[in-house]
């Protein structure tokens, strides 16, 4: 019986030591488990963009879930690099799935919002669980996507059908949908963070 108790105590101590050990850095300042979770978020972005067909006919309407997932991923796994990983994974998948008319350059359309999110989140002290910060970050990364779209359209001489409605209106539409996605993500972060106690 003593032996069993001793073994159990030893196992508990070992478990505590493992839990208390700092996570090993895999890329940037992120551990392997975090990178895998971010990969999941990135995959979700590309797949949702490919599968969902929301009949809104407004430019940038996909930002509501696209930027929402980016902000949520960044809020749940803070630190520089999480946006880059999500953007990179979704960009590579977008190229492989043949999304968009830009060919391989579609990668930048997915990558740049992630990069911009990585750059602006520290400016707001990573407080992405605050709806106002989530909305601002969502709007800014949605606008960055619009600018990349515009730049690629001009460089590759593609038909920019979204400009038919006007660049000003397009920017407002991108802002509203991006902000909505970011604000929804902020509520989700607030709800999810306390429940993710075994999130390491």
């Amino acid at each position: 019986m003593k032996n069993v108790n001793a073994a159990m105590n030893e196992a508990q101590q070992q478990n505590k030591r493992v839990l208390a050990a700092p996570a090993e850095r895999f890329i940037f300042r992120l551990g392997l488990a975090d990178v895998l979770r971010l990969t999941m978020f990135g995959t979700l972005i590309a797949l949702l963009k490919d599968i969902t067909r929301i009949p809104l006919h407004l430019p940038g309407h996909s930002s509501i879930f696209w930027m929402g997932i980016l902000v949520m991923g960044k809020g749940l796994i803070p630190g520089f690099g999480s946006g880059i990983v999500m953007g990179g994974v979704s960009g590579v998948l977008a190229v492989l799935l043949g999304l968009g008319k830009e060919g391989v350059f579609v990668f930048f359309k997915y990558f740049i919002p992630g990069l911009v999110l990585d750059l602006i989140a520290p400016l707001f002290f990573y407080k992405l669980e605050k709806p106002v910060v989530g909305a601002i970050c969502g709007a800014l990364i949605s606008l960055s996507k619009m600018l990349v779209n515009l730049a690629l359209g001009l460089l590759l001489k593609l038909p920019m059908v979204f400009l038919t409605l006007g660049l000003g209106f397009t920017s407002i539409s991108h802002t509203l949908f991006g902000a909505a996605g970011g604000a929804i993500a902020a509520f989700l972060i607030k709800r999810l963070k306390p429940r993710l106690t075994t999130w390491q």
């Binding site: 505590k16 208390a20 796994i77 803070p78 520290p122 990573y126 390491q200």
Partner: peptide, 9 residues
Amino acid sequence: KGDRCKLEP
């Protein structure tokens, strides 16, 4: 800020 850490005990 933004770091995740585990503390013992």
